Amino acid sequence: MKRVALITGINGQDGYYLSRFLKSKDYDVHGITSCSKPGIGEPPENCYYCDFAEGSNLNQILGTVQPDEIYHLAAQSHVRLSFDIPVYTAEVTGVGTLRLLEALRYYEEQSQKKIRFYQASSSEMFGKVVESPQSETTPFHPRSPYACAKVFSYWQTINYRESYGMYACNGILFNHESPRRGEAFVTRKITKAVARIKLEMQDKLYLGNIDAKRDWGFAGDYVEAMWLILQQDKPDDFVIGTGKTHSVREFLEAAFGAVDLDWKQYVEIDPQYYRPAEVELLCADPSKARQKLNWEPKVSFEELARLMVEADMRLTQQEKILSEASS
Rank of each mutant, 00 (worst) to 15 (best):
G12R: 14
A53P: 01
A90F: 07
I32Y: 01
P67T: 12
A53K: 11
V92Y: 01
V65T: 11
S82R: 07
D14E: 15
I70Q: 14
Q60F: 00
L22F: 03
I40D: 13
S34M: 05
F21D: 00
A53V: 08
L81H: 08
A90S: 14
T89W: 04
S24I: 15
E42L: 14
G63T: 09
C50R: 01
F21Y: 15
G15W: 05
H72E: 15
S36M: 11
V29S: 03
D14A: 08
H78R: 05
Y17T: 02
I61R: 02
N57F: 06
L18E: 09
I40F: 15
V95H: 04
D28P: 08
F21W: 11
G41N: 15
I70M: 09
T89Y: 04
N59E: 10
E91N: 03
L58F: 02
G96E: 09
P86G: 14
T33V: 13
G15T: 02
K23P: 00
Y48R: 03
K37W: 07
Q60L: 04
G41P: 15
G94I: 00
N57M: 07
Y71P: 06
P38W: 11
Q66T: 12
P43M: 07
T64P: 00
A53S: 15
S36G: 13
L58M: 05
S82A: 14
Y49F: 08
D84H: 11
Q76K: 08
E42S: 15
A53W: 06
G63F: 00
G9D: 11
T93Y: 01
P44M: 13
I85Y: 07
S34G: 10
H30M: 10
P86L: 12
R20F: 02
P38G: 13
G39E: 12
K23Y: 02
H72T: 04
C47W: 01
G39T: 02
F21K: 04
L22K: 01
H72I: 01
I61T: 08
Y16L: 07
E69Y: 12
K37V: 00
G63E: 04
S36N: 14
Y17L: 01
H30I: 06
D68W: 09
H30L: 08
I40T: 05
F21M: 09
C50P: 03
L62N: 07
L18A: 12
S77D: 08
T89C: 06
H72L: 10
E91I: 03
V87S: 09
Y88Q: 13
R80I: 12
L73P: 02
G94T: 04
F52W: 05
A90K: 06
I10E: 14
T64M: 05
G55Y: 10
C50L: 08
G9F: 03
L62H: 06
G15Q: 12
F83T: 10
D68R: 03
I10R: 14
L18G: 12
D28I: 13
V29C: 04
G63Y: 02
R80Q: 11
Y17W: 07
F52P: 00
K23C: 00
Q60P: 00
F21A: 06
H72S: 13
Q13T: 00
C50Y: 04
T93K: 03
P67H: 07
A75E: 10
P86Q: 14
K25P: 15
H30Y: 15
N57H: 08
H78W: 08
